[in-house]
Amino acid sequence: MGKIAERLAQLGIVLPDPAIPSANYVPTRRVGTCLYVAGQVPTREGQDQFTGKLGDTVSLAEGQAAARLCAINLLAQLSKALDGDLDRVAGVVRLGGFVNAVPEFGDHSKVINGASDLMVEVFGDAGRHVRIAVGSSSLPRNVPVEVEGLFEIQRM
């Protein structure tokens, strides 16, 4: 068992089977030593676990939990692309977070912390990244959060 797999086990995280794209895109794409992971939504076993808008039917705590689940799904896609060897991740470069929110909502960054915090919990200092957290008037299937990622990979 690798170092990152051990860390996931310590955190009680079991990576799910990665979601199959629901439109015309690929889940991951390698460019040089970087691996891009397409936006992931808060699903588990093919079912959306959260729906609605922040500032309306979804609380800040629920939004953070949804972002954390998005990050777990990012790791699942990443693991598949790396044949299960997450120790090949040299660092998390960037996360892009999209928050389905009412116009008056202003805590987008706090919501996406759910994903950012997980990356640091899993990868330590290598999990620190640049980030964007933006509001959106809607997201696919009315999920409250979507998160994409860019990872630096060693030994490609």
Rank of each mutant, 00 (worst) to 15 (best):
129 H>K: 07
22 S>Q: 14
114 G>Y: 05
34 C>Q: 13
42 P>E: 06
70 C>Y: 05
10 Q>S: 12
116 S>M: 12
27 P>G: 03
108 H>D: 01
81 A>E: 11
121 E>R: 13
116 S>G: 14
122 V>E: 06
156 M>D: 13
20 I>V: 15
123 F>Q: 04
147 V>Y: 04
77 Q>M: 11
155 R>Y: 06
81 A>F: 06
13 I>N: 02
104 E>H: 10
98 F>L: 14
35 L>A: 07
112 I>W: 01
13 I>Q: 05
57 T>A: 13
95 L>R: 04
20 I>W: 00
61 A>Y: 08
65 A>Y: 04
122 V>M: 02
56 D>M: 08
113 N>A: 13
130 V>A: 13
8 L>I: 03
41 V>T: 14
149 G>I: 02
46 G>F: 05
17 D>F: 03
121 E>A: 13
64 Q>M: 13
89 V>P: 01
71 A>C: 09
64 Q>P: 00
119 M>I: 07
96 G>Q: 12
90 A>N: 12
135 G>K: 08
133 A>P: 05
122 V>R: 04
40 Q>E: 15
91 G>N: 08
76 A>M: 07
102 V>Q: 11
79 S>C: 02
71 A>Y: 01
40 Q>G: 10
78 L>Y: 02
109 S>P: 00
150 L>Q: 10
51 T>K: 10
34 C>R: 15
109 S>G: 12
154 Q>D: 11
145 V>K: 10
80 K>I: 00
124 G>A: 08
31 V>I: 15
146 E>A: 15
43 T>K: 13
10 Q>M: 09
150 L>T: 13
139 L>Y: 09
152 E>R: 15
2 G>T: 12
90 A>K: 12
124 G>N: 09
53 K>P: 00
125 D>H: 07
148 E>L: 11
128 R>K: 15
116 S>F: 01
22 S>L: 14
3 K>E: 10
78 L>A: 02
60 L>A: 05
76 A>N: 04
2 G>P: 01
50 F>K: 10
120 V>I: 15
68 R>S: 04
106 G>Y: 06
86 L>S: 05
86 L>A: 06
55 G>N: 10
142 N>L: 11
91 G>R: 15
114 G>F: 02
138 S>W: 14
74 L>F: 01
32 G>L: 11
20 I>Q: 15
